[in-house]
Amino acid sequence: MKATRLMSMAIVCVLACWGRGDGLDDLFPKSNKVVAEGQGVKVTRSELDAAVKFSLMNSAAEGIPLTVAPQALEEQLLHELIFARLAFGRATRNDRSQAYTQAKEAYNNQLAGYTSARAFNLRVAAMGISTNAYRKRLYEEALARAVMDRELTSKIDITEGQCRKFYEDNLKNWTEPERVRVQHVLLATMNPVTGLELSESGKAQKRQQAEQVRTLALQGRKFEELVLNFSEDPGTRRKGGEYTFARGVMAPEFERVSFAMQANQISRVVETKFGFHVIRMVQRIPKKVKPFIELQKDIRKHLAEQEASVRLPGYYKKLREDAEVKVTLGP
């Protein structure tokens, strides 16, 4: 479950846009003019400019158009910078340790979604920062979340009755359809650089490679090794090629073959718009309704985060007043 948009905006999007230059300083005229200052807080014009630039470049890299007016975006980012620095000043040793672990895990998970470290670094560079600077941002994001969890979210009392009511009111959401867990090796028929389809001869070569992979699988070669050595699916290559899914999610050809297989069976070569697949059935998971006891912890966390998002503006206001933060935003 996810926190509401307000919580997300204040922690995730906010801190991803926070920076002290980190490779963007050369794109802005440097200015040490202070635009916000208080006890433990000081934000300069250059730092705010860098945050705005990073936000714009990140949106462009994601292909997401900004709908906020420039002045409104600047004001929003300034308050998010203030909030983040106030929170960071309150971090404990345990907060920092927890943040380090979470940031490292987040970085590794994102890296695993790319075909190579170079491809990942290029994606980060498209946001206008270095990989090291991006690691730092992930840590800062996790640290702010840890502080908020400790000071705000963890102090919200959610009763079992509230959890059970939420469970019963949303019973249809806890029903899981029949699913299958499979592994696959993909030989892609699209050029990863240009995004264009391969020629017919190129496709024929990929099919031949897929047939060779299938032969190795039938001969007893560990499927995880085949995935690591041959698969061109960046999203699953480092995770054993695994997908767990219900009907109506995957490409129709892939789904049809997967649901027709038995455990440990190796499929024929399956062609989809993505390329040629060799599939191994791992497990068939029957339809079920998740019991309350299994969901109670997640429901309590969701309800606490939901309430925290309501209390967040007041929490920020008090931190700002206690630190006597003054804003002098201008050109």
Rank of each mutant, 00 (worst) to 15 (best):
V269E: 00
E74M: 02
R237T: 09
E80A: 03
R247E: 15
Q98A: 11
R311L: 01
E62G: 08
V34A: 11
E74C: 07
K239D: 13
G89H: 02
T131G: 02
P291Q: 03
A119W: 09
T194A: 03
I266L: 05
A87I: 09
Y134C: 02
R164W: 01
M1H: 09
G330K: 15
L171D: 01
M57C: 14
E321C: 07
V310A: 04
Y139P: 02
K172C: 13
M281C: 02
T101V: 12
I64Q: 11
R135L: 06
T131W: 08
L312F: 07
A323I: 06
V34C: 04
F230I: 13
A61I: 01
K155E: 10
P313N: 05
E47M: 09
N170S: 02
E74H: 10
E200D: 11
F166A: 10
Q265L: 05
F259N: 05
A119V: 06
R85I: 12
M148N: 14
Q102I: 02
F223E: 13
L56S: 12
R237C: 03
A217W: 02
S46C: 04
A204L: 09
I158N: 01
G241L: 00
N109Q: 07
T44H: 08
V182N: 08
P331S: 13
R221V: 15
L86R: 01
G128C: 11
S59Q: 08
A36S: 04
R214K: 10
T115L: 05
C13F: 14
G240V: 07
Y167C: 00
V147G: 04
P286L: 06
V310E: 10
K206E: 08
H302K: 09
Q39W: 12
K222L: 15
E80P: 01
A10Q: 11
A16Y: 13
A91W: 07
N132A: 07
T328W: 12
A246Q: 14
K104Q: 13
A106V: 06
K33I: 09
L228D: 15
G241E: 00
A91P: 00
K206R: 14
A210I: 04
L226Q: 13
T44K: 00
K53F: 14
L329V: 09
E74S: 08
Y315C: 04
M190V: 15
K317A: 11
Q71T: 12
K326D: 05
S55A: 15
D26N: 15
A117C: 01
P291Y: 04
G314N: 07
F88P: 04
A61H: 04
I266H: 07
F54R: 11
F230V: 11
L196C: 03
E321H: 10
F292K: 00
N264W: 11
R280T: 05
A144P: 11
